[in-house]
Design a protein around this nucleic acid. Structure first.
Lengths: 352, 352
DNA sequence: TTTAGCACTCGACTGATGAGAGTGCTAACA
DNA sequence: TGTTAGCACTCTCATCAGTCGAGTGCTAAA
C-alpha cells in the first residue's frame, strides 16, 4: 500500500529532521524536501493522521510536530538506516583498544570516555558483576604484622582486594601456604558459594584458626555482596548541556544526580543475555521518573566465555540513534576481540 | 585601634551575610544587626573604605557589596570562627569509617560521597600516587594458558593489576617461583626504580626469558607511569546546581567539564607536604580560567608512614568555609586513624 | 485526492514603565 | 571630628502591551 508507505516516509523525515534540529518540525519544512513532492497542506493532513495514531505530538497548537516515544520506538525497530563511522571515529576507538590497557578499571573508564567523546552524550561503562564470577586465584599478601591483603582474581578478569587481620606470627610462608590451599580448594567456585565451602573443605584448619577463617569468609562475602557496587565509569556528563532539552536547570540537575548514583546506573545497564545486541529504552519506557524524558542505548561484550560487561549512552529521546548504534557496535566488537584474545587465545605464539 | 577593629567586624559581618544569603549586602542590612549599633550611613562610609582597600566589590552602582577574593583570603586566614559538627554529621562520617571498607577504590568513592553529602558541594578524593610507593609484594596469577595477571601491592595500600603474556608452558608453579623471586628482589623499591633493577638483579634468568622479563618491565613501568592516572572519585556534582552562582548553564557546563577531567583534579588536589593541613585556593588564585570563580578546599591524610591521599570540595568562592573546614578536619582525622590502625597497628591483639 | 488560500492561535521578542533597593553626597548634630 | 538624617540619583527586575512570524485547521477549488 503506497499510501502507507508515504506516511512512514513522512514520519521518518520528521524524525530525522527533529533529531537534527531539535525544533518542532512544520509542514512547510517537510514539503520543501527534494524527496517529498507534496504541498504543505497535504503534509498537514498526513501529520494530522500521524498525530491521531500517536506518532506525533504537538507542544502547542501553533508549533510544528514532535515525534512521540512511540515514533522513536518504531524508528529504532524498523526505520533506522545504518550509518558508517568515519575514519576519525574509528581511529579514536582503535586508540583506546591499542593502548593495551591492563587494569580493568582503567579500561572501563576509557570506554566511557571515548563513547561520550564520539556520541556527545553522557556515557557509562560497567565491569561484570562479581557474584557469579568464578574464583581463579586467591593470594594473601602480607602488608604488616597482623595484617594481610586478600587478593581474589576471578575468571571475569576482575580482581578484588580486602584488608584483613591475620593471627600474630603468621608470616609470608604461612600466608603463602594458605593462599595455595585456598586457591586449590575454592578454585572454580563463585564468590557466593565460597563462604559455605570454607566450612566443609577446611574442617580441621578451621577449628584451629577460627578467627582467621572468619576473616576470610568475611572478605569473600563482602566482595560477593558487591553486586550493586560493580565498578562503574561515567564519562562526558557535561555533554548533557549541549542538548537543548536540558537547558532547564532542574532538568539537568536531576539527570546528573541520577547519573551519579551508581546503583541506578548498574541497574540500567544490566547486561542483556545476548552479547552485542543493542537495547533501547526510550523515554516513558524508563521505570525511573527522572529518566522519562531520556533514552538509554546499551550494548554488551563478552569477557571470557561466561561473563559480560556492558556500556551505553544516555541522552534525550531525540537522540541520534543511528550514530549511537554505529559507535556501540564498533566499540563492542573491538572490546570483545581484545578480551577474547587476551584471556583465551592459546594458539598465538608467545613472542610479542 | 578600635576603629580598625570595627572595620574588620563589619567586613566579617558582610562576608558571613553574603555566604548565607548569596545576595549583595547593603548598608541597611548590616546596620540592623543587633551587634552593630551604627546607622546605615556610617556603614556606607566604612564600606566605601573597604571597597577602596580592595575587600569589597560592587556588582553595579545601586547594588549592595560583595566580598572580593582578597576578603575571603583574609577571612579564611584570620577571621573564620571554628564551627562544630552536629551529631548527625558525625554519625554520617562514622558510618563510612565503620563500614570497614577494604578496597581502596571503594573507600575513596565513599569519602567523596560523604563529603559532598555533608557540605553540599561537589567533592573529590584521590588515592596516593603510584610512583613513589614501594613494592611490597608481586604476584603473578595464571588466568589462562599463556596469560597471567601481574598483581603488585604497594606500601601505600594500593594494588595494581596488569594482564601480561607469559611463555608457553609456564604453569602455576613457575609463576609462583617467579612471584617469590620478584618479591624478594624488588621489595622496598619503588615502581619507578623496579624496571632498572630487573636488569641488574636478574642477569641470568633475564637472558633466558628475555621476552618474559620485557613483559614484566612493561607492566611495572605502565603502572609507574600512571601518576596522572591515580584513582579519582567524584561525588555530588549535582550539588553545583544548588548554588546560584551556577545558575548560568555555560558556567555549570564548563565547571562540570573540569570536574570530569581527572588529570586536572589530580593536579588540583596534589597532597600538601603537611598532612591534615587544610589548603584554600580562592577564586582568582586558581591557575585554571574555568576555576577563577570557584574555590577549592583540600585536606590530606596519611596512609602508612610515607604516603598521603587527599580529598577536598569545590564550590563557589562564596563557600561556607567554616563548615567545610570542620567536615574536612573530622573526616581527615578519622581516615588517618583507620589507615594507621589497619596498616601499622602491631600491638593490637588478633582476636577481633 | 491534492492544493491554494485564509483566518486564527500561540510563543518569542521588544520596549516602556514603575517599584524597590542601594548608593553618594551634603548638611546638621553631639 | 565622627555620626547621622535626608534626599536625589542610579540601576535592576518584573510586568505588561504590542508586534511578528511560524504553523495550524478548514474550506473551496482544481
Amino acid at each position: 500500500m503506497a499510501l502507507e508507505d508515504r506516511k512512514w516516509h513522512i514520519l521518518r523525515t520528521i524524525i530525522d529532521d527533529y533529531i537534527a534540529t531539535a525544533t518542532p518540525v512544520g509542514s512547510r519544512a517537510i514539503s520543501k524536501r527534494p524527496d517529498i513532492a507534496l504541498s504543505s497542506a497535504t503534509i498537514r493532513n498526513e501529520m494530522s493522521d500521524l498525530e491521531e495514531m500517536g506518532y506525533l505530538d504537538q507542544p502547542h497548537t501553533s508549533a510544528g510536530r514532535v515525534p512521540s516515544d512511540k515514533a522513536y520506538r518504531l524508528y529504532v525497530d524498523q526505520m533506522m538506516r545504518k550509518t558508517d563511522l568515519n575514519d576519525n571515529d574509528i581511529r579514536s576507538i582503535r586508540q583506546v583498544i591499542d593502548k593495551r590497557i591492563g587494569e580493568a578499571g582503567e579500561l572501563i573508564a576509557q570506554t566511557a570516555r571515548v563513547l561520550s567523546q564520539l556520541t556527545r552524550y553522557p556515557s557509562v561503562a560497567i565491569a561484570p558483576a562479581a557474584v557469579d564470577a568464578a574464583i581463579r586465584h586467591i593470594q594473601l599478601v602480607p602488608v604488616a604484622e597482623g595484617r594481610a591483603l586478600a587478593v581474589v582474581v576471578t575468571d571475569a578478569a576482575t580482581i578484588h582486594d580486602m584488608l584483613m587481620r591475620v593471627p600474630h606470627g603468621f608470616g609470608a610462608d604461612e600466608l603463602e601456604r594458605y593462599s595455595r590451599m585456598l586457591t586449590a580448594r575454592l578454585r572454580g567456585h563463585t564468590l557466593g558459594d565460597a563462604t559455605a565451602l570454607l566450612e566443609t573443605q577446611f574442617g580441621d584448619e578451621l577449628r584451629q584458626h577460627r578467627a582467621f577463617f572468619d576473616q576470610i569468609a568475611d572478605a569473600l562475602q563482602r566482595n560477593a555482596r558487591k553486586v550493586g557496587r560493580t565498578p562503574v565509569a561515567l564519562g562526558g556528563t557535561s555533554n548533557l548541556f549541549f542538548h537543548p532539552e536540558f537547558k532547564d536547570l532542574e532538568q539537568a540537575r536531576s539527570m546528573i544526580s541520577v547519573l551519579e548514583t551508581e546503583d541506578i546506573m548498574v541497574h540500567l545497564l544490566e547486561p542483556r543475555p545476548q552479547p552485542m545486541q543493542i537495547t533501547f529504552t526510550i523515554g516513558g519506557e524508563n521505570q525511573l521518573d527522572e529518566m522519562k524524558g531520556a533514552s538509554i542505548v546499551t550494548a554488551s561484550y563478552r569477557i571470557g566465555p561466561a561473563h559480560m560487561a556492558s556500556f551505553g549512552v544516555i541522552g534525550p529521546t531525540r537522540m541520534d540513534y543511528a550514530r549511537v548504534v554505529a559507535v556501540l557496535e564498533y566499540l563492542g566488537r573491538s572490546l570483545s576481540e581484545i578480551f577474547t584474545a587476551r584471556l583465551q587465545d592459546e594458539s598465538q605464539p608467545f613472542d610479542p
